[in-house]
């Protein structure tokens, strides 16, 4: 992780703040590919670990991210909004490849809901610079709550379509939009999980090949909120403390599980779960694989001390 500092805090809307983040020693940070995000760690003992898309790379070599204040959040976004000031220190990861724009598409369709607009700003700029066709469909409650509204309108006139659901004469974005495109179109879907699921399904139904549909689902960081849990195996039942690593426990109990990365990235330590609820903390397994009862014990674990996780080994 890189030591960084908050260089500027800008109010974008009543609920969205933009933060400029620079290297602590003033060296320019590496440039980013459109669609990329950072993992940030901020607060006392760097408690709040959150991924945020990079909105912009400034001339002095800083990144800008935008954070929505959500009431339901476990505290990360509230912390950013209420506590973070210019000059505060934080740690950031190197940029990560979130949604690299399609290489082969001749037309790009961006669908954004609310704060999901952040990765799209860089991608729209990328298209414009290369003269590649694109359009943006952006839904927000009201014009006042629409982050980057004037920036988008000024920079991409003619390509932006806004849908304000709470304004009088409300317009609505609907999945029917996706049926009008020619082959060679890529679609990017960025919004809350329900929006992403709905539009991903709609895009596949409209004939977009899997690889032409881009969405990003962030999962919770792997260290926060770990609970003790019980698990049972053919050898017996055991209890895991909140600080204990599930894979280590299984190895300790004599189960021979191949493992490699210990960080939920390589998939080697995968095991089968026959019952109980899993607290998945990897980004490796697909939603379908998790549904089928697979898990990676190197980062994932159980959730309950009353209903054991039943492991088949």
């Amino acid at each position: 992780m890189i030591s960084a500092v908050i260089k500027e805090v800008i109010c974008e809307t009543a609920t969205v703040k933009r933060f400029r983040i620079g290297d602590i020693k003033g060296r320019p940070l590496v440039k980013f590919t459109p669609g990329a995000h950072l993992v940030t760690e901020i607060g006392s003992s760097k408690k709040w670990v959150r991924p945020y898309s990079i909105v912009r790379y400034t001339r002095d070599g800083s990144y800008e991210i935008a954070v929505l204040k959500t009431e339901r959040s476990r505290g990360g976004s509230r912390y950013w909004h209420e506590k973070v000031r210019k000059g505060d220190g934080l740690k950031i990861s190197l940029p990560r490849n979130g949604m690299k724009p399609s290489f082969s598409a001749r037309h790009h369709v961006f669908l954004a809901a609310g704060i999901g607009i952040t990765p799209i700003i860089g991608m729209a700029r990328w298209c414009k610079e290369r003269g590649i066709g694109f359009e943006l469909h952006y839904t927000a409650r009201t014009k006042a709550q629409c982050a980057f509204y004037s920036h988008l309108k000024t920079n991409f006139p003619g390509q932006c379509h806004f849908y304000f659901t709470r304004e009088t004469a409300a317009e609505r974005l609907t999945p029917e939009l996706l049926y009008q495109y020619r082959t060679g179109t890529a679609v990017y879907i960025c919004g809350p999980p329900a929006f992403n699921h709905q539009y991903k399904a709609a895009a596949l139904a409209a004939g977009f090949p899997d690889r032409a549909v881009y969405t990003e689902m962030f999962v919770p960081p792997s260290s926060e909120g770990r609970k003790p849990f019980v698990f049972s195996t053919s050898h017996g039942s055991y209890r895991a403390g909140a600080e204990e690593n599930f894979l280590d426990l299984l190895l300790e109990k004599g189960f021979q599980i191949p493992y490699s990365c210990r960080s939920g990235q390589c998939g080697t330590c995968e095991i089968s779960v026959k019952g109980g609820e899993v607290d998945h903390r990897d980004q490796f397994l697909t939603a379908e694989e998790k549904m089928e009862g697979r898990m990676l014990p190197c980062v994932s674990r159980g959730k309950s001390i009353t209903f054991p996780l039943i492991i088949e080994l």
């Binding site: 082969s104 598409a105 001749r106 037309h107 049926y179 495109y181 020619r182 082959t183 060679g184 179109t185 409209a206 004939g207 977009f208 090949p209 690889r211 032409a212």
Partner: peptide
């Protein structure tokens, strides 16, 4: 072609490769 089209071609070598190039340019995966 509209999105969702699957392309099949049985053509002689020569024309086939030109068609492949055209399909790649059109953004077919």
């Amino acid at each position: 072609q509209k999105n969702g089209t699957c392309l099949y071609a049985a053509l002689e070598t020569g024309l086939l490769e030109k068609l492949e190039t055209a399909a790649v340019c059109a953004g077919y995966l």
